[in-house]
Computed example of a mutant assay.
Amino acid sequence: MQRMGMVIGVKPEMIAEYKQLHAKVWPEILDLISLCNIRNYTIFLREPENLLFGTWEYHGNDFRADMAKMAADPKNQEWWSFTIPCQTSLDTCQEGEWWAMMEEVFHHD
């Protein structure tokens, strides 16, 4: 199991819509997240900085393959057509990165 964290900006004028979308995540998206070996997925909002922080546990053996499966799924692409316009990537993101991945520096069970 690998814990992962990531951060992205959210457009201030889109916060209410983003919250509304995530209050009723489509069942197909929840199933896909589980199918791609992601567990305990949580997104936090930090205002007034307008940052989203996501954290999850990855329980698979091939993260790249699972993320490719997720990205290729037509229902997920439709979901992203609603969520991505709410977000704004950080200026420091790596090439091809939307959410900026974070380094875990501390954990306590």
Rank of each mutant, 00 (worst) to 15 (best):
M67C: 00
D91M: 13
E47I: 10
H107Q: 09
A16Q: 14
N76C: 12
P12L: 05
E13W: 08
M4P: 02
N61K: 11
R64D: 15
L30V: 11
C86L: 03
H107D: 10
K75D: 14
T88V: 15
K11W: 04
A71T: 11
S34E: 14
N37G: 04
Q77S: 10
D31M: 07
V105T: 11
I38H: 05
P12T: 02
E103P: 01
M102D: 09
F106W: 09
L51K: 11
S81Q: 10
H108G: 05
E97M: 06
C86D: 02
W56D: 07
L90G: 01
A23W: 06
Q87K: 04
D66H: 01
E49Y: 07
K11R: 12
I84P: 01
W26K: 10
I29V: 13
L52Q: 01
D62K: 07
K75R: 11
A72T: 09
E17D: 14
N61W: 14
H59V: 13
G5E: 08
S81F: 03
A16I: 06
I38C: 06
E47M: 09
G96E: 08
L52V: 07
D31E: 12
Y41T: 01
S34T: 10
S89K: 14
M6I: 09
E17G: 03
I15V: 12
V25R: 10
I8P: 00
W56P: 03
Q20W: 14
R46W: 12
N37P: 00
V25K: 08
G5K: 02
V105E: 03
E97N: 08
T83C: 13
L30A: 08
P27F: 04
K19D: 14
I38G: 01
Q77I: 13
H59S: 13
V7I: 13
S81R: 10
L32D: 03
Y58F: 06
V7L: 15
I8W: 00
L21I: 12
L35P: 06
T55F: 03
D62Q: 10
P85R: 07
A71K: 13
L90F: 12
N40K: 09
P74D: 05
G5P: 01
Q20V: 11
L45S: 03
E17K: 02
V105M: 08
C86Y: 03
P48G: 10
S89W: 11
C93K: 02
A100W: 03
Q20M: 13
